[in-house]
């Protein structure tokens, strides 16, 4: 009974959302957006016909928005990730950590394959990070990919527990570095996170990648440890 009610209610809400969106002059139809009147137009025009030095703006506008125009938001986002990994560590952290025992034994194929895969994934991740200015999503996917490569090692080798504290350290350093870069901007141009040299953008992208990778690895590490009995 409860499920039927919930079903009806959820469906009703979905229908209401669709109906209210289809009859709304504030909300354009699918594929019919006019963002050239909106706030995005500024980002696009400065990109397309702007007189800015080409090296200063990333080729990918999404990355440009993330690290340049809305760099402050990204700083906040990095902080959220940072705080959530701290939260996980607080909730799951134990005094004397030990790697958790998985229920299955990794067989030969898995361990060899995963090691082979690790190198590819890791390098791809670094590649993406280095080409973050063109790739969609900036350096986030790169960071995530680096983290996944580590996770694969976790799965394949039950004795594996790299010194992930280095990753955690990298994450902290990256987050601080972000602020530091911002402060450099403040020092040179009077604006926080000012983009006055191509180097700034690159640094930020690399730092974000390290931060994401470190954050995810830290979280995974926390999940895969338990207290030594």
């Amino acid at each position: 009974m409860k499920k039927i009610l919930a079903f009806i209610f959820a469906i009703t809400l979905g229908v209401m959302i669709i109906l209210s969106l289809s009859n709304n002059e504030l909300f354009t139809d699918f594929g019919d957006t006019n963002h050239y009147d909106g706030i995005s137009s500024g980002y696009i025009t400065s990109e397309v016909g702007g007189d800015e030095e080409p090296a200063l703006v990333p080729v990918n506008i999404v990355t440009g928005i993330l690290v340049d125009y809305r760099g402050f938001d990204t700083l906040g986002e990095v902080t959220v990730l940072f705080v959530s990994s701290i939260g996980v560590a607080l909730l799951l952290g134990v005094a004397s950590p030990k790697r958790i025992n998985l229920n299955f034994k990794p067989n030969f194929m898995l361990s060899v394959g995963s090691r082979a895969l690790f190198g590819v994934m890791f390098l791809t991740g670094i590649y993406i990070v280095l080409h973050a200015k063109t790739s969609p999503g900036g350096s986030f996917p790169g960071g995530a990919m680096i983290a996944s490569s580590i996770l694969i090692l976790y799965l394949s080798n039950d004795t594996f527990r790299t010194d992930v504290s280095k990753f955690k350290l990298g994450k902290s350093l990256a987050a601080s570095g972000f602020v530091l870069v911002g402060l450099i901007g403040l020092l040179f141009t009077g604006e926080f996170l000012a983009n006055f040299h191509p180097f700034i953008m690159d640094t930020i992208l690399v730092l974000i990648a390290i931060d994401v990778a470190g954050g995810i690895v830290g979280i995974i590490d926390n999940f895969l440890t338990e207290e030594r009995v």
Binding site: I65, L66, L81, P136
Partner: peptide, 29 residues
């Protein structure tokens, strides 16, 4: 070009989603 702003926002949202999920899972644990 298509509007880049929603994409940038979603990118942010994904990362934050990872954070909340991680916290939720650790609470579940």
């Amino acid at each position: 070009v298509v509007d880049p702003l929603p994409q940038a926002l979603v990118l942010t949202a994904i990362v934050i989603g990872v954070g909340t999920t991680a916290i939720g899972l650790s609470l579940a644990k």
